[in-house]
Design a protein around this nucleic acid. Structure first.
Lengths: 344, 344
DNA sequence: GTGAAAGCGCTAACAG
DNA sequence: CTGTTAGCGCTTTCAC
């Protein structure tokens, strides 16, 4: 690979001249002639700035790490696109990692930052226990912004409006005429699950519906398997719900599949609405009514936030409200078959 | 962050001693006493080797890039696990990228290697046109191994046994008694699609079945939408198939959804089997019969191959045959309702 | 056994 | 306008 010195030699100038020209330094007062010669030489030699050299000198990598619990979650696609788009506009790169791996969490984050592989990180701690050592790293003041999760007193986070998302989903069911509505939620320790619980209950309360008993809120998790278990649990109740809000689209897919097995017809016997949308929701049967959450905007905001933190030291907490959660009505929701309390 | 010099000062030794000890250099002839002091100092100072410093000096990053068309494809989960496991064992890191982004392909690969951000790459070119500039990079002799794709005369690839995968899927349908079997394949230019076509036809031929007309093989692509289109195309035929081999699980999901809309009952009216398996296949209705492909092994093999290439210069082409493609029978396949040619 | 020193490719003062 | 120079943190001869 060609180095600055090679280009300088070829162009017959000094390395500093080349450096100034090629890194477009604002104060690059250079004659048009030399500039040309430098550009030509760089092109001929196919010059590429060496990452290590630059990083070593400047103590900056212009790379931000993004670590999420599960890379292959369809929900993550939009997040990533948002993150990459924002990064590109700021002339940064995104380095991907995942935290689902046991040790990976705190350790990987510590390594990436400690070894100077990234300037900052965007991390989503999964539903499980926060990775060991996360607390220390956060406390160390490293430029880390948390997405869709909170950690004790850590400031620097961007959150989806899960309260609103769950509220919209619940309201939809209420508008359909449902009264006995359940929530199949994420694990108890999950922050997002708590938020969705809040939105769910507030929609109910605002509609003048009694808050449902505890049995109407499962806390099983966000996977398809968890969704299947939730269906069993809910439909085994002596008075089962007529509608269910799924806190996650993957759980909803599992629930739909289990409903087939159990002979429960959706939406005839049970209406299902999910928080989160993805292409998979269009391909279930029946197609899944869902509340689309602004993952793309969250990706952008998160990267914008770390970069701000890295470059200016400013730290913020942000709730993504634009675009706001948006209901996509498909075919998994309908009026309940009979009212819980026959009105006429 | 603490540097080697900091550790040296704290331990009262020279930087070179510290370097030798901490990088476990085999020829580290060091007294036990100094070794202790160095380790202690390093721990106290929370020393982390600086990535840029090391990379600059050694001209090696111990990072391999992995670029795939779509990170969020569930199929990719296993691939990634395999790649990471192998990398960890070899003391490498994996840097993820995606090639679905227009310019991303050749450009991103060229950058990563050219700027010295990675020592080598594992790349899967998608179904579409190979990214501009890929040819040059490959020809330049950079350590790149292609997965599930081939490129002209490039040597250095690891491939799934798609021929065998498609063959097993097809044989299953034949064993169920199907005679009119279609293949919903990937795009014509895709290498994997060609392989699957070969396996499909060879199973048919071996069973003594006439190769189906061209109309029985669609070349629409691997997405859910493509699968939906394939169903329409196939079932609109004057003599529609009774069974279909889907070249991809996502397309199968789309096809199943479209079948509901079209009033085609699976497996009663149409049996469906897919090449590839994933958690989503368990949650369709009916649950999807699929041939599980060894993505994990491919991930490991691919990373092993680049590292070999980087460190020893040895280049290989490899077909992953262990474990071999494995049929998982679920409920989307059954005997055809009536034989095409009534036998009795 | 241990240390001094050179240099990887780059940027940024500082001179001219 | 342009060149010289001093390191960034690390590894690695080569001396002692």
């Amino acid at each position: 690979m060609a180095t600055l010195a090679d280009v300088a030699a070829q162009a017959g100038v000094s390395v500093s001249a080349v450096s100034r020209v090629l890194s477009k330094h604002p104060s690059a007062r250079v004659s048009e002639a030399t500039r040309r010669r430098i550009f030509d030489a760089a092109r001929d030699l196919q010059y590429r700035p060496n990452f290590a050299g630059r990083a070593l000198k400047s103590a900056r990598t212009r790379v931000v790490g993004l670590v999420v619990p599960d890379l292959t979650n369809a929900l993550f696609a939009e997040l990533l696109r948002g993150a990459e788009d924002e990064a590109r506009e700021c002339d940064y790169m995104v380095l991907l990692g995942r935290s689902d791996n046991l040790s990976a969490g705190g350790e990987v984050i510590g390594r990436l930052i400690g070894e100077g592989r990234v300037d900052g990180m965007v991390v989503q701690v999964g539903d499980g226990v926060p990775p060991a050592g996360l607390g220390e790293i956060l406390a160390s003041g490293a430029p880390i912004v948390l997405i869709n999760s909170v950690y004790e007193g850590h400031v620097g986070s961007v959150l989806l409006d899960d309260v609103e998302g769950a509220r919209r989903a619940t309201e939809h069911l209420i508008q359909c005429g449902h009264v006995r509505i359940a929530l199949a939620n994420g694990l108890r320790r999950s922050y997002t699950a708590r938020q969705r619980g809040i939105g769910f209950r507030s929609a109910l309360t605002e509609a003048g519906l009694a808050p449902p008993g505890r049995a109407y809120e499962t806390r099983l998790g966000y996977t398809a398997t968890d969704g299947r278990a939730a269906l069993r649990r809910l439909m085994d109740l002596s008075v089962p719900p007529t509608g269910v809000v799924m806190a996650n689209v993957n759980a909803a897919i599992g629930l739909l599949a289990e409903a087939r097995v159990a002979g429960i017809r959706v939406p005839r016997d049970l209406s299902v609405v999910s928080v989160h949308d993805s292409w998979t929701a269009e391909n279930t049967w029946p197609p899944l009514t869902a509340v689309r959450m602004p993952f793309y905007a969250m990706g952008r905001a998160a990267v914008r936030a770390v970069i701000a933190r890295i470059e200016t030291g400013v730290t913020t907490d942000e709730l993504i409200s634009d675009p706001s959660p948006h209901l996509v009505v498909r075919e998994s929701t309908a009026r309940p078959r009979r009212q819980a309390e026959p009105g006429g």
